[in-house]
Computed example of a mutant assay.
Amino acid sequence: MSNDADTADRPRAPRWLRPTIIAVLFAIAFYQMSGWLFHNLKGFLGLIFLAWLFSVTIEPIVDLLERRGLRRGAGTGLVMVSLFVLTVGFFALFGTILAEQVAQLLTTLPDALSRVTDWANRTFDTNFKTGDDLLHLTPDTIRDLAQRFTPGVLGVVSTLVGALFQLLTILLFVFYMSAEGPKMRRAISSWFPARQQKVIAEVWETSVEKAGGYVVSRLILAAASTIATGIFLLIIGVPYWLPLAIWTGVVSQFIPTLGTYLAIALPAIIAAASQPLDGVWVVVFGTLYQQVENYVLHPRITARTVSIHPAVAFGSVIVGATLFGAVGALVSVPVVAILQALVESYGTRYALIEQPDSTAPPPDPDSTAPPGPEDPKAR
């Protein structure tokens, strides 16, 4: 009897304790599993998002072809084949020149850096170290570096096979995401109630418009910058004008904030290695072209895209590169553009109240005092 009494008097655990412990354990397990999946699948997820970004970029053209009576799958294939033909045509026209100039540029770049550094030390009385001083290049070190960083035949073949597999994966997902875009949208919407399907459709359209518009505008601006820079470098006689022009166009448009300075630095160094005054002219041209792009080209081309603050864009590139590497850095700005558009569409802003000016003089107490009784002596 005493044992039963002790058991009855012992305090029982609350009913919520066991479900809470189980829920916490499941949450920890889910967190660990999610982190493991993200760590192992982040490369694949980056490829999927890159394919989606490519698909929404060509979706306006596919929609136009579909309205003209062409089936969506055939229209998607036609657009992709056209882009492939244009790429092959570009490399057929400039591939040999580009390959030769890139090889020569990589060979002469260390010497160019050394010559520019020597000129800066003589002109401005500085003490910067040259590339040879930093690397201490000797025949032995060159041989060691070549043996360490030059991959074998098997490594080259495996790298090429991996790159080809990733390219085919992206193209396959691009085709299905573009050709089956409306079906995919309806399939996703069917899992939600009717009142939420309109929101899903609006979010999808906003994402397609902002992401596709951003990529298209950047490609147009990159092409314009490449053509203008190439013509200028060719006119003043800067060597390796084609790879330098492509470098300038791509880097200046797809690396926010710092891209403009990184893009023009390399052509300026190469030009200054041959003729220091040419390096100055390249910097002047880059500065003037940037002003023309900021005030003339950029507002007109990106009129329908989201304008992102440079600090936000730069921060998004850092976060994207940290999470997904080079692919994350490439797609981070369109993601931020989509999020900003959604916040502006569904967020609520309120009018600011007028704050009193602290620098204004205090009001005159006599002028603000209430009128008192009339003085009888004043009569």
Score class of each variant (00 low, 15 high):
E202L: 11
W36R: 13
G77P: 03
I270N: 06
W16D: 04
A211R: 00
L113I: 15
G131Y: 15
T206D: 05
T226H: 13
I269N: 12
Q290F: 03
T126V: 04
S2H: 15
G152R: 08
Q32L: 15
D6Q: 15
S34G: 14
A211I: 10
L113E: 07
D357K: 00
F165Q: 11
V153K: 13
G69T: 01
P376Q: 07
Q166L: 04
I21K: 12
R67L: 01
G259N: 09
V335E: 00
I227C: 10
W36T: 09
E66V: 02
S82D: 04
A222E: 06
K198C: 01
L219A: 15
L134W: 01
P256N: 09
R218N: 14
T359P: 01
T57V: 04
Y295P: 00
L53F: 12
V312E: 06
G372T: 09
R379D: 11
R68F: 03
L70N: 06
A272P: 12
V157N: 07
A223C: 13
F314Q: 10
G46V: 07
I170T: 09
F91R: 08
W52K: 06
L277V: 14
G35Y: 11
P334K: 01
E66T: 05
W281E: 08
T359F: 05
V174Y: 00
G372C: 03
T359E: 08
Y295R: 06
V81P: 06
G279A: 01
W241F: 14
G77Y: 05
T206C: 03
G89H: 09
L86N: 05
G155P: 03
T348K: 14
A120G: 06
D118P: 03
A271L: 08
D118L: 13
R12G: 14
R148P: 00
G69Y: 00
T159G: 10
F232V: 11
S252Y: 11
G73I: 01
F149G: 02
L70F: 10
A313M: 05
V292K: 00
D366M: 06
F165K: 15
L98K: 05
L45R: 07
P139V: 00
P299S: 06
L339K: 03
R71H: 13
F84H: 08
L244I: 03
F90R: 06
F192E: 03
A5F: 15
L234G: 13
Q104C: 07
W241V: 08
Y176H: 09
G237H: 09
E59M: 14
F192G: 03
R18P: 04
D132V: 03
R67W: 00
V62G: 00
E205K: 11
R115I: 05
I97Y: 07
